[in-house]
Design a protein around this nucleic acid. Structure first.
Length: 728
RNA sequence: GCCGAGGUGGCGAAAUUGGUAUACGCACUAGUCUUAGGAACUAGCGUCGAAAGACAUACGAGUUCGACUCUCGUCCUCGGCACCA
């Protein structure tokens, strides 16, 4: 899917999954002196060694640094810590309890948490060096990731470095940068200013000295396997997805609990399980369905004995993970969807959604498809071929956070002052209280939302839509300011007036007979004859006209207004078509505005037939190309242009087609630079040869001013683009 | 802190992918028409300058005949992640 998905989204998904490759290594752990120690055996976290001693498993991505380990550090929640809490000194136990309490608090992402921890008094043995090192508890080790235990190598890890500095633990360098290799061989433990976290060459590592990190990682993991204290491993940061919710709405989970049979899935023929019509919303956190006996009381599908249903419902992310498949076959009573229908329609060609769904929803959807693939329901790996993440429309918010909690005030109730650059300098609420401000995604509670109904009421649906498309590239975040929307209204009104202005001379009713003819045009562009201009019905029905110059494809020889307008029309068709192809929607609106400006420049009084034809083509093209942006206006204007009320679809109108010959300019402007600086411009036909262009440039008066008496070193001619003369 | 995106007029933004910087629109200024205009139309609108011209795409270097675009460095803004071993 790399071809169709933004790299940034895939990167974020990859980070979210957080694959990391390393190794598990087991350290023998024992009591120190005559204190007590018990080692609970927890699968994956601890084990028994051959000597009957307990071992703690750590996860590391840098097994090559193991000779630099000065301690192993466990999470406060680690089972070994919990099992020995009564064996520890009071000081240690208190510290552990404190860290646990701190860990349980919701994390404040603003402040960096200071490293904290304590030596438990336990000891561990480095399985490579057989060195005895202390066992610490550290607040920076999380029980949720890896094994909840790490080896601390301060010389080569930022966090361990900080921890060691704080508690005065030894810092021993065991990796040297490749180019420093020889210098370090003789070096004693060196005082590092910062941890060296890059790969290098092993030093102070006995047998492994001189090996490259990459090789050592592999070989040391193999060594651990051979000696039974570890192995290479891959871990993920991906968190579990708990799909049950205590809500009334949501898909029921088709599971039944039977006292005799245990957890039993509902029978296939009883699916889907339907929600009751009503359920009390309790507000207590318990599922509302648990209050509806008619719903949960049932019989066991296995033994027919009394049983009860699961009363939690599924997270809405479950539904959004595969709704696009259900939409293909929404009335299917027997299956989620018909397999063949899905095979025909899916995967989704183009998906459009907010940037905020880059991880959760889109990861779940991809995951779900893979599950369905494994079940044989779909035949592909990925649900979506192309993804467009559109930026959100956001708004200014005003709030007061004196009390520690943000109290929002709707923009309508806030008096703001802005400086010359439009930056906000002051915001005051009705009680003259200074407010803070921010730009945030729209929400009711923040009072920064825009009511679409209100926008439609004031400006109309077409103008509102057009403006949103025009204001910024689709993937940009758009800060909502109403100021620009008037421009969209004006533009649509201008187009409207243009159509009505030309209506009388465009001879619309004459077209009607032709338009009414059956056109039997099936879908697909191939149906359109090459060379004809469906840009407007006009080109077709004027074929029989006395004036052959109006035949489509015929280029009027004059450089008159009609010729220029037709050029503009076809250039615009190209620009708009290309933009749609690359999912750009702001620049085509600009192109359409330019076209309407060009039509506006055409003199109405005394317009000849050629001009009327050009205007008809331009207006028809304009109106049709506007359809995606302002469908209602386009429908209305199309009716005027075509002279009937059947509408765009019934008239088999289609997107105007670009004719290259029409778009080609008779003459183009060629800038002339002297030493890279623009000095003049010359006009030339597009097919003018390089030699001719050079001649034209040198013939230019302005150019001679700059070249006379100077030595011409070089002349660069870019065909159809420019001439650059280098002089000395 | 790490990762990512970005920085162009008063504002939203264009720039055919290395070839006329600022298209289109908003705002603003002047004028025309009008009983009126918050309508429409005309003209102007990067900075300095009377003009010729000079200088301008965050800042500083570089590559090139030519750089908003490519390379290196610095600063700043926004977004994501957050002690991930």
């Amino acid at each position: 899917i790399e071809a169709g998905w933004p790299a940034s989204v895939l990167k974020r998904q990859s980070d979210w999954m957080g694959r990391s490759e390393g190794a598990f290594v087991e350290f023998e752990v024992m009591a120190h002196g005559d204190s007590l120690f018990s080692c609970p055996i927890v699968d994956g976290l601890t084990s028994l060694s051959g000597h009957g001693k307990g071992r703690v498993r750590v996860f590391t991505t840098r097994i090559d640094t193991i000779y630099g380990a000065n301690a192993i550090v466990l999470a406060a929640e680690h089972p070994v810590i919990q099992a020995n809490i009564d064996n520890f000194s009071e000081e240690v136990a208190t510290k552990i309890a404190f860290i646990r309490a701190e860990n349980a608090k919701p994390t404040d992402h603003e402040a960096e948490i200071e490293k904290d921890g304590i030596d438990t008094g336990l000891r561990a043995v480095n399985p490579f060096s057989h060195e005895e090192i202390p066992v610490w508890v550290g607040n920076y080790v999380m029980m949720e990731y890896g094994t909840g235990a790490v080896m601390s190598v301060p010389a080569h890890d930022e966090r361990d470095f900080e921890f060691a500095k704080k508690f005065g633990l030894p810092i021993r360098q065991v990796i040297s940068e490749p180019h420093m290799e020889h210098a370090h061989h003789t070096m004693q433990a060196m005082a590092l200013e910062v941890p060296l976290t890059v790969y290098g060459v092993l030093v102070h590592s006995d047998y492994w000295n001189g090996k490259k990190s990459e090789d050592a990682k592999k070989e040391m993991a193999e060594y651990a396997v051979k000696h039974g204290f570890g192995e290479a491993a891959t871990t993920y940061r991906l968190r579990d997805w708990g799909i049950s919710r205590q809500r009334f709405w949501g898909s029921p989970i088709p599971i039944i609990y039977c006292d005799t049979c245990g957890v039993v899935p509902e029978k296939f023929e009883n699916l889907p399980v339907r929600l009751p019509e009503n359920a009390p919303i309790t507000g207590t956190g318990e599922s509302p369905l648990a209050k509806v006996p008619e719903f949960y009381e049932t019989t066991c599908p296995k033994c027919d004995g009394p049983a009860h249903r699961e009363t939690d419902t599924m997270d809405t992310f479950v539904d959004s993970s595969w709704y696009f498949f259900r939409y293909l076959d929404p009335t299917n009573e027997d299956m989620p969807f018909d397999i063949e229908k899905a095979a025909y329609w899916a995967p989704v060609d183009q998906y459009i959604g907010g940037d905020d769904h880059a991880v959760m929803h889109l990861i779940y959807a991809r995951f779900w498809s893979k599950v369905m693939r494994d079940m044989g329901l779909v035949t592909f790996n990925e649900p979506v071929k192309r993804l467009l993440t559109q930026g959100m429309v956001v708004g200014e918010t005003f709030f007061d956070d004196e009390t520690g909690k943000r109290v929002y005030y709707p923009a309508a109730d806030v008096t703001v002052e802005r400086d010359a650059k439009g930056r906000l300098t002051s915001a005051v609420n009705a009680e003259s209280r200074q407010l803070k401000h921010a730009i945030e995604r729209m929400s009711k509670s923040k009072g920064n939302g825009v009511d679409p109904d209100e926008m439609v009421e004031i400006y109309g649906a077409d103008a509102a839509r057009l403006f949103v498309m025009f204001a910024a590239p689709i993937e940009n975040e758009l800060v909502w300011h109403e100021a620009g929307i008037e421009g969209a209204v004006r533009f649509l009104q201008r187009v409207w007036r243009l159509v009505y202005k030309w209506e009388s001379v465009l001879n619309c009713h004459a077209l009607q007979s032709v338009e009414k003819e059956p056109q039997n045009v099936p879908e697909g562009r191939e149906a359109t004859e090459a060379g004809s201009s469906p840009a407007d019905a006009g080109s077709r029905d004027m074929k029989g006209d006395a004036n052959p110059a109006l035949k489509s494809g015929a280029i009027h020889p004059s450089g008159g207004i009609d010729r220029r307008l037709r050029q503009k029309t076809h250039q615009t068709i190209k620009r708009v078509s290309d933009s749609f192809e690359s999912l750009q929607f702001n620049t085509p609106v600009a192109a359409l505005m330019e076209l309407s400006n060009a039509i506006g420049d055409v003199e109405f009084d005394g317009a000849d037939e050629e001009t009327v034809f050009a205007v008809r083509e331009a207006l028809m093209s304009l109106v049709l190309m506007l359809t995606p942006f302002s469908p209602h206006t386009s429908e209305e204007l199309y009716s005027i242009l075509v002279g009937n009320e059947d509408g765009i679809l019934a008239n088999s109108a289609r997107f105007p087609e670009f004719i290259e010959e029409m778009a080609k300019a008779d003459e183009i402007e060629i800038p002339v630079q002297i030493n890279g600086k623009l000095r003049s411009r010359v006009m030339a036909a597009p097919e003018t040869s390089n030699e001719e262009l050079e001649k034209l440039a040198f013939a230019d008066e302005k150019v001679r001013e700059f070249t006379d008496g100077k030595e011409v070193v070089k002349v660069i001619v870019v065909p159809k683009r420019l001439v650059n003369i280098v002089v000395k």
